[in-house]
């Protein structure tokens, strides 16, 4: 049967229940933090590589798929930074905007040079040339790692790289709702797209649990509420194949992102969320000794 171009393969209940990292004894909150940071890292790298948002979003979904399920990748074995880089490399390779291994390695080296996970986005645009040139030897070894992890991703996903995104649907739905005659329609559209971008970072893995039409509908619903534009006074979301319950869940999920991100930022402060296996071990050691002292 022809796979619907609107649909995404979704995670099974079993996959959502247990993760490879969980089986290796990594605390769930730490895993959430690392996945969140990894998705943000992919987004930042994609922007620096001047990739279209659709390509970046696909890479984030591939990155997210990698970690779920008992057969998924474990943070004990793979650094989130490496998986992020390889996801982006793999997805760009299939897109109309391929990037060389060297570009990817340089950009990730540059992003790794910042002392804190939560840096100002202005700071990212600064040119610190010395930070993103890696020596030839480093390049060779990182390239090998990039390729090995790429194969690992292909293995764990069983080559399932198909990602459908809600962006185009969102614009189509807005047109169908006839909102573009409204003077503040562009504000609504911007907000809705912003919610879609945010949805990629959700610890609830919205793109692994819900289909793009529902995510697009929820983003529009929420954006319209925030901007104060009145949408049809009927259950219009059903036209876009979203039922009330799903809509409610997604809206709550999107709304919770701000407080989740703020809490993450507070929790880690100037520190760095562990993006490699070594950093993870150090973090676990610190936590263990902190608990021991208590």
């Amino acid at each position: 049967m022809q796979v619907s171009p609107l649909a995404n393969p979704l995670a099974t209940v079993a996959q959502l229940e247990t993760s490879g990292s969980q089986l290796d004894g990594i605390p769930a909150d730490l895993e959430d933090s690392i996945r969140f940071a990894g998705a943000r890292l992919t987004q930042a790298a994609g922007i620096l590589l001047r990739l279209p948002q659709e390509v970046i979003a696909q890479a984030i979904v591939v990155f997210s798929r990698f970690w779920v399920g008992p057969e998924g990748g474990s943070l004990e074995e793979y650094g989130a930074g490496q998986v992020s880089a390889s996801s982006l490399y793999l997805v760009t390779k299939l897109s109309a905007f391929p990037k060389s291994a060297r570009s990817i390695i340089n950009v990730y080296a540059y992003l790794d040079s910042f002392p804190s996970t939560f840096v100002d986005s202005d700071l990212l645009q600064q040119k610190k040339a010395d930070a993103y040139f890696v020596s030839e030897g480093t390049y060779q070894s990182r390239r090998t790692a990039l390729f090995n992890t790429e194969q690992r991703i292909l293995y764990i996903l069983g080559f399932q790289l198909h990602v459908s995104l809600p962006y185009i649907l969102c614009v189509t739905y807005l047109q169908a709702l006839d909102v573009f005659t409204h003077p503040r329609a562009s504000e609504l559209a911007n907000k809705a797209i912003a919610h879609l971008n945010t949805s990629l970072l959700s610890p609830q893995l919205l793109h692994l649990t819900h289909q793009p039409p529902c995510i697009a509908t929820a983003a529009i619903y929420l954006a319209a509420k925030e901007v104060g534009i009145k949408l049809p006074d009927v259950e219009w979301w059903e036209v876009f194949d979203t039922d009330r319950e799903e809509l409610g869940f997604l809206v709550v999920g999107l709304l919770s992102m701000e407080s989740f991100a703020t809490a993450e930022k507070q929790k880690w402060g100037e520190g760095k969320i562990p993006m490699t296996v070594e950093e993870l071990h150090r973090e676990m050691q610190t936590r263990r000794s902190a608990n021991g002292e208590d």
């Binding site: 995670a11 292909l154 996903l157 069983g158 399932q160 198909h162 289909q211």
Partner: peptide
């Protein structure tokens, strides 16, 4: 009950 379209695209798992 209004009938809503449900899209299916399977899932994923490690390659055999």
């Amino acid at each position: 009950e209004r009938k809503l379209l449900r899209f299916e695209a399977g899932g994923w798992g490690p390659a055999r």
